[in-house]
Design a protein around this nucleic acid. Structure first.
Lengths: 212, 212
DNA sequence: CCACATCTACCCACTAAGGGATAGACCGCC
DNA sequence: GGCGGTCTATCCCTTAGTGGGTAGATGTGG
């Protein structure tokens, strides 16, 4: 028997809410001699359940999914198994998403427009516990590190600002005074380097701080 | 020879900028006895070129692609062949996108999270020149019809508003007075039923009038 | 315990934005 | 030729948002 036949295959779980994408990845992975798909998840909760059930070598994870958001899945899975090897695969290239996932412990991050070979290379790298990040993605993570973080309260306010709420409306919803809402908005503007709330929303959206 | 063998297969072109999605669709289509993929495009220009080259029975088209936007591809292809059968397949469910594509002459519109069977059913329907639209998508197209359209100038202004520009800044960029910029913004607010520019951006984004 | 960050709240002053109305210039269509 | 839509522009007035600073309460970690 040849070595490659006796060596265990890389066991992969795919988590993505688009059946088409899962099909595509599954076809790609199963064509390889050294890897196989052991399960597929269509939402965040399923991803967690199936991970704990199968304990695969690699979890390929979409960021935006129903029921539970990708970052939450990363946390939960790494909590269950700190050595879990997670590869994020998403269309979102905002520095916040990248930073969150990688600093949380995901081993790789790549974009859905990546060519086949790169995707397979990433899965192999992550399966051997080697980090995989394209240079453009790594650059964004580094960029993010130089920027100030928003507090939870500021994120709450930012979300309402992005919905088009007025300071008065925001204050009412958060049970604070309008003055306090203004204070939060001001610090958001400062941190995001924006001169108006509308620009703040644009910046926050580009950076992946909010997802409309 | 049995009828199904002599009957010509449905010839399909896939246009999507994600290799994974193309792989998934191709695998799905090629497994069917009655259809086959004759070409794959990774951007809008390629989609047009390959359509004119192969003249397939169905063009499956992603809306957001590099080089040329999906709506522009629909126009161009239908200009080349008014009987072209185009099936839009996208993640965007804003009423504006749906309305634009269908009123332009696309035969079907479905979302990427659709199950395999629905996708195949849509391709078959469109290949026979039967429109295919899920009820939720059709509902949005109808909703859109009741809403006022923005003029081209208003769309120009809206885009700058969405970038966070001030009225003064917008005026400068469009070479108009600030007062005129205000007039445009005011009519945008009225048409989108918003009380502030930030809310207008939120509404416009949800409806698919702008894509950040 | 002290230092630090966060959330809350207030002050003042100034600018930007929104609401309503009106109107001339231009263009295409019936 | 006239009607309707669009783009441009202006008026007045009111409200919302921005920029500056200050500060008490609370909680957390060194």
């Amino acid at each position: 028997m040849v070595a490659v036949l006796t060596r265990k295959k890389i066991r992969v779980i795919l988590a993505d809410d688009h059946p088409v994408v899962r099909d595509g990845l599954a076809a790609m992975v199963n064509q390889q001699a050294d890897m196989e798909v052991v399960a597929e998840a269509g939402d965040g909760d399923e991803a967690i359940t199936l991970y704990e059930q199968h304990q695969p070598d690699v979890l390929v994870l979409d960021l935006r999914m129903p029921k539970r958001d990708g970052v939450a899945v990363v946390q939960r899975v790494l909590d269950f198994n700190p050595k879990a090897r997670i590869l994020i695969m998403t269309t979102y290239d905002g520095d916040e998403d990248i930073f969150q996932c990688l600093s949380q412990g995901a081993k790789g991050y790549l974009l859905k427009d990546a060519p086949r070979q790169e995707i397979l290379a990433a899965i192999r790298a992550v399966s051997e516990d080697r980090p995989y990040t394209s240079s453009s993605v790594a650059a964004k993570a580094l960029q993010r590190m130089a920027k100030p973080s928003l507090t939870q309260r500021e994120l709450d306010v930012l979300e309402l600002v992005a919905q088009g709420r007025s300071n008065k409306d925001i204050a009412r919803r958060l049970s604070i005074t309008e003055g306090t809402a203004k204070t939060h908005v001001k610090s958001i503007l400062t941190k995001l380097d924006a001169i108006s709330r509308t620009e703040a929303v644009a910046v926050a959206h580009k950076r992946g701080l909010i997802h409309l």
